[in-house]
Write a protein that binds this DNA or RNA. Structure first.
Lengths: 337, 337
DNA sequence: CTGTTAGCGCCTTCAC
DNA sequence: GTGAAGGCGCTAACAG
């Protein structure tokens, strides 16, 4: 691998001149041209490792997600990645799965001296997040947040979204409403559940069933099968994310039930797939790309200049009514199938 | 940030002893314990940047994908990530989109001195890949390959898969068969197309239509709308990947057509979604996780010991018949809708 | 078993 | 505008 010394020797200047030339420092235009030329010809690429050691800025950012295979995260990853690249940084991706080894992954990121970390799926019990925040390490929480942590937070309006969903179901006449949640220790699941139930209660309706699944399709599918196999199944299932709603849809299909005639299904997030004709999912839209971009930018700001006050940004959410919801009780009228 | 000097001072030994203790070198168990303890208490994390500079092994691996939001890639990413982490490495993710700036992304990876790169979506015209291979830089191509490049290649059996799909359609009596391809300069699209057409020709059947889309849902949807809106639409659409098959399914649904009665659809890859009850997609299965793992391992081997001969591994593919394909010509019998 | 000594490749004052 | 020198935090001989 060619070093700046190599090209210095070739051009006949000092290594420090090469460094300056490459970084836009004060160098005679003639020498700069020769240096740039030599660098290009030899396919020279600055050694970010060495540079990072001296500048103590690695130009690396950690992004931790719970589950890349949940299509929600790629949406975030794409937007974050674009933004990061624009800012001249690279993304170290950590896929923590159930979160058991989040600490391990974070440690690895830290070893690589990432300049900051974006957590897209923090859990309430995440010690790593808590410690980093306490240490003043640049982190931003997006999608999920954690109570009592002093850092930038970019989330959607879970409260309003879940309320709108509840209202929608109520208006359609549903009374046997089931809620499919994710892991309890996540703010998304918890906040959406709380607001959803509150809105029902406000209308004098009690939640008919509550089932806890992972945030994935498979467990949601299984939970839905159980729910829909009851003697008196719910007429509507609210899911705390779209992937789980797909699981519910699959379960209905599996049991030969018609959506929305036999059962209505609502999701949350409005990932692109939700609008596919195969699903036409009624769901709560969150401006995912915008949130992700903002997360990347917020981290960038915090890295470059430790601001005084961390900010908590809540992006608006909006109910998108498509075709997985309909009036309750139409099933018998039209007959099954 | 605490350095090894800090903990050396605290414990009362030299910095090099600390280094040894941390790396499992020969150190008295007593001192090691005290060092490890101090390190833990101060939340010490080795500076991988400094370590990388001296060892010239960054423990970083680049993974470049064409489009994270194509659910195919997250499958790969997950498996690769797991494997990488097991090998004590981290993944620098590069999402190159249409591939225009692949060179730029690769340069960034190189600057960070990744020890190797896994290309999951190389294009035939990728100069970066070609140059890296020529330079003997550790790379492995998976999913897509590039002709005339001397490096490890891990792919599925596109030939056999596409042939099996063609045979299946032929056996079902289809004669008006359309093929939905991806960008021409990709081995996956090209190989699948070639084998598919060859099998048809062998049966004396000419391809009825050919449409080129991106590898994404949207363009496949649009192309399918066009195909299915013809006066005499194809009775079957073969897609070079599952995401495009979903696009075709969506298009059929959009036009009020029934799959498989009105039109059969076949995909390629068998990503988990394909088996969802909403899709029940007939497709060609490729052992994605196994391939991804093998790619990670192959890269690992090549990094640790530059082997003599790069190997080209072809994983078996297998037609999975689900419910998006049926006998041609049943549509009229049952009537539309 | 532990301390001493060189750098790894680059940026950055500080002189000139 | 350019050169010289120091050092980022760590590993890896080499002594002892």
């Amino acid at each position: 691998m060619t070093t700046s010394w190599d090209i210095a020797r070739e051009v006949g200047v000092t290594q420090s001149t090469v460094s300056r030339a490459l970084n836009g420092g004060p160098v005679a235009e003639g020498t700069r041209a020769r240096i740039l030329d030599a660098a290009a010809r030899r396919g020279y690429a600055v050694n970010a490792v060495a540079r990072g050691l001296v500048t103590s800025r690695s130009r690396l950012v950690g992004v931790v997600v719970a589950d890349v295979t949940n299509p929600f995260y790629p949406e975030l990853i794409e937007a974050i990645g674009t933004r990061l690249t624009a800012n001249g940084r690279n993304m170290l991706l950590a896929n923590v799965g159930n979160g058991d080894d989040e600490a391990h992954h974070v440690k690895l990121l830290l070893e690589h001296r990432v300049e900051g970390i974006i957590f897209t799926s923090a859990m309430a019990n995440s010690v790593a997040v808590r410690r980093l925040a306490a240490d003043g390490f640049p982190i931003v929480l997006t999608n999920r947040e954690v109570d009592g942590i002093d850092c930038d937070v970019i989330v959607g309006n879970n409260h309003a979204g879940a309320e709108a969903a509840a209202e929608h179901l109520l208006e359609l006449g549903h009374r046997r409403i089931a809620l499919l949640t994710g892991q309890r220790c996540t703010s998304t699941s918890r906040d959406r559940e709380t607001a959803f139930k509150a809105r029902l209660r406000h209308a004098g309706v009690a939640l008919y069933r509550r089932a806890e699944a992972g945030f994935d399709q498979q467990t949601a599918f299984e939970a839905s099968i159980t729910l829909l196999s009851e003697a008196k199944p719910p007429t509507a299932i609210m899911c705390v994310n779209d992937l789980m709603a797909f699981g519910a849809l699959n379960a209905a299909r599996h049991l030969g039930l018609n959506v929305p005639d036999d059962v209505s299904v609502v999701g949350f997030d409005d990932i692109p797939m939700a609008s596919w004709d195969t699903f036409r999912l009624t769901t709560v839209r969150q401006p995912l790309s915008a949130m992700a971009q903002e997360a990347a930018d917020a981290l960038d700001r915090r890295i470059t200049s430790p601001e005084p006050q961390p900010e908590r940004l809540v992006f608006p959410s909006e109910l998108i009514v498509r075709q997985t919801t309909s009036q309750s009780g139409v099933s018998k009228a039209k007959g099954r199938n």
